[in-house]
Amino acid sequence: EIRVRVEKDPELGFSISGGVGGRGNPFRPDDDGIFVTRVQPEGPASKLLQPGDKIIQANGYSFINIEHGQAVSLLKTFQNTVELIIVREV
Rank of each mutant, 00 (worst) to 15 (best):
V82I: 11
G43I: 02
G19S: 05
G18K: 04
L49W: 00
R88W: 00
P44S: 09
G33F: 01
L12D: 00
G24H: 08
K47H: 07
S15F: 10
T77W: 07
G52S: 04
I64M: 14
K47W: 04
E67Q: 11
N65C: 08
Q70P: 06
L49N: 00
G24M: 10
L49Q: 03
F35G: 01
D32Q: 15
L49C: 04
V39M: 03
P26A: 08
L84T: 01
F63A: 01
D30N: 12
R88S: 00
K76N: 14
I86L: 11
V20Y: 11
G43Q: 06
V90S: 13
I55H: 03
R28G: 08
V90N: 15
G13T: 03
P44A: 10
I34F: 03
E11Y: 13
V72T: 13
G22F: 07
P29H: 11
D30W: 08
A45H: 00
E67A: 12
L75Y: 02
N59V: 01
V4I: 10
I2F: 14
N65P: 04
G33Y: 03
Q40K: 12
P51H: 03
G52D: 01
S62C: 09
Q50Y: 12
L84E: 03
G24W: 06
L49R: 00
N65F: 03
F14I: 07
I85R: 14
P44W: 01
N25D: 13
T77A: 13
T37S: 11
Y61I: 13
L74G: 01
A58M: 04
R3I: 09
G18I: 04
A58G: 08
E7V: 13
R28M: 08
K54L: 06
V82N: 00
G21Y: 07
E7M: 15
D30R: 11
I16T: 05
V72C: 14
D30K: 15
T81M: 10
R38C: 13
G52M: 05
H68P: 06
E89T: 09
P10T: 06
I16P: 00
Q70A: 14
I66G: 02
D53R: 02
N80L: 08
Y61F: 13
L74M: 15
S62T: 10
Q79I: 13
G33L: 02
E67M: 09
G24S: 08
R88V: 00
E7S: 12
F35V: 05
E7N: 14
G18P: 03
P10M: 04
E7R: 11
G13M: 03
R28I: 15
A71R: 00
F27R: 06
E42V: 09
A71D: 01
A45R: 02
D30P: 06
R5N: 13
E89M: 06
V36H: 00
Q70E: 14
R38K: 15
F27S: 07
S17T: 12
P41E: 15
N59E: 07
I2C: 03
T77R: 11
E1Y: 15
I85S: 12
R5S: 14
S62H: 05
I2N: 02
D32T: 15
Y61T: 13
G19C: 03
G13L: 02
G19E: 04
L75D: 01
K8P: 09
I85H: 14
V39W: 04
T77P: 02
P44Q: 06
P10H: 09
S15R: 06
S73C: 07
Q50I: 14
P51W: 05
E67V: 08
G69H: 13
L84W: 01
P51S: 08
L49Y: 04
V87I: 11
D31E: 08
R38P: 00
S46H: 15
P51Q: 08
N80G: 12
Q40I: 10
E67L: 09
V36D: 00
P26G: 08
E89D: 08
A45E: 04
S62P: 10
R38G: 10
D32F: 07
A71Y: 01
Q40E: 14
D32H: 07
E11S: 11
E67I: 06
D30S: 08
Q57T: 13
K76M: 09
P29T: 13
I66V: 11
G13K: 03
P29A: 14
A45W: 02
P51M: 08
P41I: 08
E42I: 07
N59G: 12
S15W: 07
V87N: 15
R23P: 08
Q40L: 14
D31H: 05
F78E: 10
D53A: 02
G60F: 03
P44F: 04
Q57Y: 09
P44D: 06
I16R: 00
P41D: 15
E42T: 10
V6S: 01
N65A: 09
L75N: 00
R23H: 12
V87Q: 15
G33R: 03
I56T: 07
D30I: 07
G19K: 05
V87M: 13
G22Q: 10
E42K: 09
L49S: 02
V4L: 07
I86C: 08
K8F: 09
L12K: 03
G33I: 00
V72D: 11
V90E: 15
Y61H: 15
L48V: 06
F78G: 09
G22H: 08
V87C: 14
K8G: 14
V90Y: 09
R28V: 13
N59K: 01
P29S: 14
G13H: 02
T37E: 13
P44Y: 04
N59S: 04
Q40M: 12
V39I: 07
D9Q: 09
A45G: 06
N80M: 09
H68R: 10
